[in-house]
Design a protein around this nucleic acid. Structure first.
Length: 629
DNA sequence: TTAGGGTTAG
């Protein structure tokens, strides 16, 4: 522990050698700690003085010191203080458990609670609540259940805070029945308890159950409404989340900054730029404080909705940037194919001494992958553990596989999977398979396809990738087999869907969609563009329309891909030269990519398409991804 | 004399 010089703040302390009473000294020290609780150096000096005056063993002083150290994130000092205390009492244990929790060391918190029980220090409600907090964050269902049993046996009684934490724990761990049982057993189910229960339902994906609890509530405050919006958005019900936000406004419930963060997330995921802009303006009007969450949400919304310049302007305006602010911006730049800028921002972040976390590396490595920066990507990956002490997780390995695969270093990517020490996931195999397809390496593709088809967890996107791979080789029977397996497994192909925002409304199109009221004008425009693009040299690449049908039919299937319909609607419903912004749920196909480049050239429009992986900015016959995605 | 509420991006 560093001993700092005694500052003037303790010059007026009672003299330890005088006859002043201990209680007086204790009171003064505690009061000093309160006054200086935000200044770690002063706290250390006070601690030194407490040691000298032998007050540091006083349970009340030790308790305050420990709490203050935890508050300023000096967890090492807190641990040392705890270890130096003879027979720490339940208060001391609880504060250190709480300290571990706020520091993110959940396992340490859980272990310390167990140690306390082993040492026969009787747990009280506060200690149990702190322990359960750690269990919730660590998703430690087993330990949580043990504590639940301990509480029942000890006769402590199910204190309200304990019951609330148990509802949360069971929800977060996916055992909604147990959460419900706890909730139903609570004598007082007020707005807070209901909010926790709603959160638990959403955590388990039980959207309608959550809404039912919400609808049965008497008074509903801002936090509760926000929980519902957040839950809907987390469960992919973005439009419904926005509807609840409108309803909340109609009912006159004031949104807070958390509400806005959730609403902005819905806009980001819908690609609803105009609505996002409106919300931003509304927030300014309400004087919402732009804290780090709000800043991150705004940067994320603008970049995900295609306006990377606005995201950058916002980022530049944030005075104190933390890791999440940088993460939002680096992720945004990567999404837009601005690879160099993303890597430069990463360097700037390190220079500013902001410590990166695992998410930062997903962003930077993604940027390297989109920009074909193989060597740099490799170096950054190596630095994760060596320099930054961050153990790579499966998504980081996935980025590396993607980086190597995209540039055609397929063997290396395959070996990498074998060496990496974590199990390959289906996304990683899919990315490699896609690389095999692009680089036309059939042998390697078959090896990967075999691994992928044997994978225990494979989603609809991976099935389609596999089926498309076989179809691209003309192996229709294999492709059909994959589709059959998919059907048997009850997995439904996610249909391609594109959306475009015109006059604050989101218009959605499926492939060959005929539902839109403007369908006549849309299809007329499409026909016109098909004609004009052929003059520009466009030849439909029939291999991507992967059904066992003849070429003419394939051409037809391609021609009505959802993104083309959305673009045509944009063209007929907006002023000349207006930028079109389209969102697509799946990856854009080669054929549409080639076609949209020409549409942008012919119509002199900027067309921004967000697909599942990234943004494509089409302008004057070219795309920002340089045909590399 | 020592303390704990429910909602926040990637």
């Amino acid at each position: 522990m560093i001993i700092s010089p005694v500052p003037t703040i303790i010059a007026n302390l009672p003299n330890p050698h005088s006859s002043s009473h201990d209680s007086n000294l204790r009171r003064v020290i505690i009061s000093l700690l309160h006054k200086n609780r935000k200044n770690p150096k002063h706290v250390q000096s006070i601690h030194c003085h407490a040691i000298k005056t032998r007050t540091s063993q006083d349970p009340f002083v030790a308790f305050e010191l420990l709490r203050v150290y935890c508050k300023v994130n000096y967890i090492d000092h807190a641990i040392k203080l705890f270890r130096c205390t003879q027979n720490p009492n339940v208060y001391l244990y609880t504060s250190l458990i709480d300290g571990f929790v706020s520091f993110g060391s959940y396992t340490d918190a859980i272990n310390l609670f167990c140690q306390m029980v082993r040492k026969h220090v009787l747990a009280d409600n506060y200690a149990v609540t702190a322990m359960l907090k750690a269990c919730v964050l660590q998703r430690a269902l087993g330990s949580g259940k043990e504590v639940h049993g301990l509480v029942l046996k000890s006769g402590l009684g199910l204190d309200r805070s304990i019951a609330l934490k148990l509802v949360e724990l069971y929800g977060k761990c996916g055992v909604l029945e147990d959460a419900r049982k706890m909730f139903d057993g609570m004598p007082e189910r007020d707005v807070v308890a209901c909010t926790v229960m709603i959160g638990s339902c959403f955590d388990c994906g039980m959207v309608e159950e959550a809404i039912e609890v919400f609808n049965e509530m008497g008074t509903r405050d801002t936090v509760c409404w926000t929980m519902v919006i957040d839950g809907l958005v987390r469960n992919g019900e973005f439009n419904r989340g926005l509807e609840v936000f409108r309803e909340m406004q109609v009912k006159g419930v004031e949104p807070n900054e958390v509400t806005f963060v959730c609403v902005l997330s819905a806009c980001a995921q819908l690609g609803a730029l105009e609505l996002g802009r409106w919300i931003h303006a509304y927030m300014r009007k309400c004087g919402v404080e732009v804290n780090r969450f709000v800043a991150g949400a705004l940067i994320n919304m603008y970049s995900r909705c295609g306006d990377i310049d606005e995201a950058q302007a916002l980022f530049d305006g944030v005075r104190v940037k933390d890791v999440s602010t940088y993460n939002s911006m680096i992720g945004g730049l990567a999404l837009h194919g601005k690879s160099i800028e993303a890597v430069e921002l990463f360097s700037e972040m390190l220079k500013e001494r902001v410590r990166p976390n695992g998410i930062t590396f997903v962003g930077v490595l993604n940027a390297c992958s989109h920009g074909g920066l193989v060597d740099l990507g490799g170096e950054i990956f190596e630095s994760m553990e060596m320099i930054h002490g961050i153990e790579p997780e499966v998504e980081h390995y996935g980025c590396m596989v993607d980086i190597l695969g995209r540039v055609g270093r397929l063997e290396e990517a395959f070996d990498f999977i074998g060496r990496m020490g974590v199990e390959a996931d289906d996304k990683m195999l899919c990315s490699l398979l896609s690389a095999c397809k692009i680089h036309k390496n059939i042998g390697m593709g078959e090896k990967v396809a075999k691994l992928l088809s044997e994978h225990y967890r494979i989603d609809s996107g991976s099935f389609i990738m596999l089926s498309n791979f076989y179809a691209s080789l003309g192996r229709w029977s294999y492709a059909a087999e994959v589709r059959e397996k998919m059907e048997k497994g009850g997995i439904i192909k996610e249909p391609g869907c594109s959306s475009i925002e015109v006059n604050n409304a989101i218009h959605e199109f499926f492939s060959g969609d005929l539902r839109h009221p403007e369908r006549k004008r849309i299809y007329k425009k499409l026909e016109e563009l098909n004609y004009l693009t052929k003059f520009e040299g466009y030849l439909p690449a029939t291999e991507v329309a992967l059904h066992d049908i003849d070429d003419e039919q394939k051409e037809l299937a391609l021609a009505v891909h959802s993104e083309r319909l959305a673009i045509c609607y944009g063209l007929v419903s907006t002023e000349a030269y207006t930028t079109l912004r389209v969102g697509k749920n799946l990856r854009i196909c080669d054929d549409c990519h080639a076609m949209i480049k020409l549409i942008a050239k012919i119509t002199r429009r900027k067309i921004v398409v967000r697909d599942r992986n990234r943004f494509h900015h089409f302008e004057n016959g070219e795309c920002s991804c340089k045909d590399y995605w």
